[in-house]
Amino acid sequence: MLLWRRGFFGKGDLSRSEPSWLARQINLRQTGGKQMTSEEVTAKRRAERRQFKLDRAAAIAAVAAEAEAIFEAEGRVIKPALSGPAIPSAATWRPSPSLAETPATPPPEEKEPAELEPLVDVEHLQLTLQEAFFLAWNLDCLTIIDPHTNDPMTLKQLWTACQAAHLSLAIPGTPSPPLQFDNPFLIHYVVYHHYRSLGWVVKGGIKFCVDYLLYKRGPVFTHAEFALVVCPVYEDPEDQKASSLDLQNSTPFAWSWLSTINRVNSQVQKTLVLVYVTIPARSRLSLDVLNSPACLQHYSIREVTLRRFIPARMRD
């Protein structure tokens, strides 16, 4: 919880984002679900939005049916109104008491206090490789244990292990595959470290078809303002041909793909940013520099901001 509350690192494996499984269970046991957590508030909001759409569609259908009845009885043509006192709007509609009072999750069975078993927090905080290395290297607040020896990993061992996680699985008894400048961990960590060092809260953006989301303060305060797509660029094109890795977005993508991503993020009021990470050429650097984080100084970042053009809204 300290990692989450003091930097919004990781996510709960039993929650949408904030590790709140234990709070939800305590809430169900003590208050019967009256004090809702963020997941339950979101579920209730979605249920209300769904009910609003159903009520609005039913009201519009009723107005259309009334217009049909007047036409059949009197022969007058009346254009059904899509707004008015009879049509609910987002400003005037209120959820029904039954929907407002229904908890997002069913209350637990009533038991005597002596029969209740003590709650054990079984939720864990999941960290990405980028988050784990950032906490261990920059903030020095995380110790990672080697699963084979049960000893704390050194920074060099952790750095090598994070890179090896993205390479081809080595056969036991054979040497591990050599490190590469276009390792996906390196490329994504360059972006993660860059924005974290500038004060942004960086979270995964797979929900919106992007690599990262940028928050000014954190996901509990405001929605993300920027959506990042990482685009690797080889300094030497020959390195891309000789590489054994097929990096995503390393080749020119179709405009249809770009329009799709831009449209998705425009609908949720996020600015799409293409982050180009230049991969250094192997001809001017030795692979030995990859043995330490000092190699990050050879990578560079360029940003291109995209904005969706909507002719009907941008004439002014």
Rank of each mutant, 00 (worst) to 15 (best):
R315I: 11
H298V: 04
P175T: 11
L285V: 06
V202Y: 00
I70H: 07
V202P: 00
L285R: 13
L3E: 07
A57L: 08
L22Y: 09
S83K: 13
S283N: 13
R5V: 03
K11T: 05
R50S: 14
Y215F: 15
L296V: 07
A91P: 00
L22Q: 06
D211W: 00
F9C: 01
W4P: 01
N150D: 12
R263T: 10
R50T: 09
V201L: 04
A59Y: 05
H194K: 09
P88F: 05
W93F: 07
L3F: 15
R313W: 05
L14E: 04
C295D: 05
L274T: 06
Y234V: 05
E39V: 03
L129H: 06
Q163F: 03
C209R: 13
R302F: 07
L213K: 00
P80Q: 07
S197L: 12
V264G: 01
E101H: 05
A65I: 07
V289S: 06
L198F: 02
T174D: 09
T260I: 03
F52I: 03
A90E: 15
Q30Y: 07
A23M: 11
A65T: 12
I301M: 07
E303R: 03
I70N: 04
V233K: 10
V275G: 01
G205Y: 00
Y234F: 15
S17V: 02
T251G: 04
T222N: 14
L99W: 04
T251R: 14
F71I: 05
S96E: 11
F253R: 12
L169D: 11
P152G: 04
L129G: 15
Q240Y: 04
K53L: 13
P172M: 13
R282A: 14
Q180M: 08
L22C: 10
R76L: 15
Q126I: 15
E131S: 05
V233I: 12
P177G: 13
K203T: 02
F71A: 15
V233F: 10
G173F: 03
A43Q: 07
S266N: 14
A281C: 11
I261Y: 02
L22D: 02
A170Y: 10
L155D: 04
T92W: 00
A73T: 13
A91L: 08
P88E: 07
Y234R: 06
A86P: 00
E235I: 08
L2S: 14
L28Q: 12
V268Y: 02
V210I: 04
T174Y: 11
S20F: 02
P311A: 08
L213V: 03
F133K: 01
R217L: 12
D182H: 05
F71R: 15
G218P: 00
A242L: 12
R217P: 00
P107C: 08
T271F: 02
